[in-house]
Simulated assay, not measured.
Amino acid sequence: MANSSRPGAVRKLKKGPSKGTGGLGRKALAGKGPTPKASERTYHKAFKNKELAERSAAKHGDGGRTGGTGRGRSGPKGRATEEMVTGRNSVVEALRAGIPAKALHVAVRIEMDDRVRESLKLAAERGIPLMETHKPELDRMTEDAVHQGLVLQIPPYEYQDAVDLAQETIAKWKKGYINNAPLFVALDGITDPRNLGAIIRSVSAFAGHAVIVPERRSVGVTASAWKTSAGAAVRVPVAKAPNLNRALGAFKDMGIYVLGLDGDGDVSLPALELATEPICIVVGSEGKGLSRLVRENCDQIVSIPIDSAMESLNASMAVGISLYEISKQRSTGV
């Protein structure tokens, strides 16, 4: 018999049946299933970033996301909530334009340059809170947009109701609190915020009272619109109409004349006889113009005479020319 304790000895196994594993061996070979996502592994960096983002969202009450330069984000039922302006050039330009801001987020250990220094200076002068924020959180806030360590948080614009605003304006005019007859501009299918900003600026320049935008498929007051308005968005209210055609119908019931702008209008702008009356000018997009239902709700379709039939005016330019003519007629009493 071999001595199994001797170095190099081989132990002989007893022949015959032996006790099994009860199937545990087969179960061990079955594997542990698919590999969990990085954000679900407690030891992974992605999991820690996810926890950081969730804690921040709970702290600030942020239920949505935004990204890019000036892109808005949506809250419950599609309502606009906040907007993020990202990138050093965009942020400093927004601050120069006086756009209302909720906070300026600056990356931890950001590399300073003239744009960052000016942004910090402007924010401090306006009393905008400065938030030192880690890069993962900035990435989350902007949906991985190129923010360069600088993010300006814009609060949502507070829209008035179009019909309520019109009723208030009419009441003030009738009581003598407003000298000129109410003058509104409504947008039909315009989606470019720069057009909205330019229109707000024209309405302010020619003593208009408000801009009306539809609830759906329309531009809203974004950072880009604020910037293009050159500060006029502070003075001219922008109101929303859940249904533009119903709002125009309500305007007409109040005694407000609804005038649509179109190149094929039956009245030329210089021959407009309603300039001194309460007016709502409706302008459509440059490509599609006024929609059929909006056109049907207009009291008159007004055209702006131009030299060439091949040319067309964009929405903001058409509104500016129309408001100038109306203002001129009101001042002269013609």
Score class of each variant (00 low, 15 high):
Ile281Gln: 00
Ala239Tyr: 02
His105Val: 00
Lys328His: 09
Asn3Pro: 02
Gly98Leu: 05
Ile281Lys: 01
Met141Ala: 15
Val234Cys: 10
Val319Trp: 07
Leu244Phe: 04
Glu125Gly: 02
Gly255Cys: 02
Glu137Asn: 09
Ala28His: 03
Ser331Glu: 13
Gly16Ala: 03
Ala145Pro: 14
Thr86Leu: 00
Ser74Arg: 10
Met131Trp: 13
Arg79Cys: 00
Thr66Asp: 03
Met84Ser: 02
Arg41Asp: 12
Gly70Ser: 06
Lys328Asp: 13
Leu259Gln: 01
Leu248Ala: 05
Ala58Asp: 12
Leu24Asn: 13
Ile212Gly: 04
Gly8Tyr: 10
Ser218Thr: 12
His105Met: 10
Val234Ala: 10
Ala315Val: 12
Thr21Ser: 15
Val267Asp: 05
Asn179Trp: 11
Ala225Cys: 09
Gly333Asp: 06
Met317His: 15
Gly72Ile: 01
Gly98Lys: 11
Gly25Glu: 13
Gly70Thr: 02
Ile304Gly: 02
Thr142His: 11
Gly260Gln: 00
Met317Glu: 14
Met141Tyr: 10
Thr332Met: 10
Thr42Glu: 15
Gly197Ala: 10
Val294His: 02
Leu259Asp: 03
Glu277Ile: 00
Gly189Val: 12
Arg117Ala: 15
Lys240Asn: 09
Gly189Ser: 13
Thr222Phe: 11
Asp139Pro: 06
Gly263Cys: 02
Val203Cys: 04
Gly31Lys: 09
Glu111Thr: 06
Asn179Tyr: 11
Leu120Trp: 09
Asp307His: 14
Lys19Trp: 12
Ala166Pro: 04
Asn195Trp: 08
Lys12Val: 06
Val221Lys: 00
Met310Ser: 13
Ala232Asn: 09
Gly67Thr: 04
Ala205Gly: 04
Ala186Gln: 06
Val85Lys: 00
Pro155Arg: 04
Gly320Pro: 04
Lys102Arg: 05
Ile326Gly: 01
